[in-house]
Design a protein around this nucleic acid. Structure first.
Lengths: 201, 201
DNA sequence: CAAAGCATGTAAGCAGTTACATGATTGT
DNA sequence: ACAATCATGTAACTGCTTACATGCTTTG
């Protein structure tokens, strides 16, 4: 399980409900998870079974009861152990690249259209990343993911004080995301130009 | 299904057996699939059920019978339709980044060790990519994936002639792969230096 | 009155992984 | 003797996805 550690990470800041965690994940552009119920709630059940989190059920008048999950000492140990474990290299498996790999089945115009479509999508993504990075830089305190209801909870006094180091890391990850798509965009443009140049020598 | 189109792509060059396709995938650093049996053989069954490939069983004296798969007109249509479809943006979901995101739980030394480990792995990966790119550039004719038994089959006269455009694309994908890890390496080094700088101001 | 928010959960499925199973043959 | 190659396939599992189900409240 992979999201398990990310959930423990959020819970290391402060207690959250499943619903809040779900928002945290689906709002966080930084690491794009769908934040679907099945995984969040299922993982929380597993974490509770393993004693990594404790549950406090809060009855509410006007809303359904909420289960507030807190990380336990055991959970912190697990998180720490994972943080100290060997990082795993990310795999770059892009279906768009596979598409290009056999684009020789396409005409020059069709290949150009394919690259154009990819380029446009990348441009949009770059804009989104830039906006997200700008907002985090402007917002100062709040994590990218920490907006909306859950965000308010994070920003209020009960949340752990953020160190300069953590701020540096989160900003770096944002920049990395942006640079990833930006580089891919530049690569696509170069490839497109080179492919076009082959047509008229 | 995702590998389905990649299999159709290989079969658009020339017929292959499941065993050869498996090697093609596990050897191809370009798009790193495990090339496991379950997926290859299962997908081939599905492709045959859908009439996208035809099977020729070849009895052999000294080796088990082999099923040689050829792409059909229907299969070519499916491949072409997919090639013309909207490319999907790759997602950058790196567990190492998630690890870093909560690295504030670690001491300065521990964070540095984590970044060092990541850096070393990236260095090794960059060397591998560089080697792969160099070999393809030197080999000229052969695709990265097209070595070993299946490679011989690809290189012999029955394989489709490769265009300058296809060569350009495959080389570009190799360079993209290399640049991806290279950029990640540079990013890691910068982050490491910045984190270290925070310690002694 | 409809849409969105709060809050929990289940069902079904896809894509991918490692590992197991068989059995002859060829190379070290 | 042991390992690798040739060649097929199965089993069990992980991680993730969309969509469904319920039901009450607040906002537009």
């Amino acid at each position: 399980m992979s999201i398990r550690h990310a959930i423990l990470g959020f819970l290391s800041w402060k207690p959250f409900t499943g619903y809040e965690l779900k928002k945290l994940f689906s709002d966080a552009l930084t690491f794009h998870w769908s934040g679907n119920n099945n995984q969040i709630y299922g993982t929380l059940v597993g974490l509770h079974r393993d004693g990594a989190v404790s549950i406090e059920v809060q009855q509410q008048e006007k809303f359904p009861a909420r289960k507030l999950y807190s990380i336990t000492a055991k959970g912190r140990e697990e998180l720490r152990a994972w943080l100290l474990s060997e990082p795993v290299l990310p795999a770059l498996r892009s279906m768009a690249h596979i598409q290009l790999a056999w684009a020789d089945c396409l005409s020059a115009a069709e290949l150009d259209a394919l690259l154009d479509s990819y380029e446009r999508q990348l441009e949009a993504q770059v804009l989104m990343c830039r906006e997200a990075a700008r907002r985090r830089a402007a917002g100062g305190a709040g994590h990218e993911a920490a907006r909306g209801a859950a965000g308010d909870a994070v920003r209020d006094g009960s949340s752990p004080a953020r160190s300069a180091r953590e701020a540096l890391i989160w900003t770096s990850i944002d920049e990395n995301n942006l640079a990833f798509y930006d580089r891919e965009l530049e690569w696509t443009r170069r490839l497109r130009a080179a492919a076009a140049a082959l047509e008229r020598p």
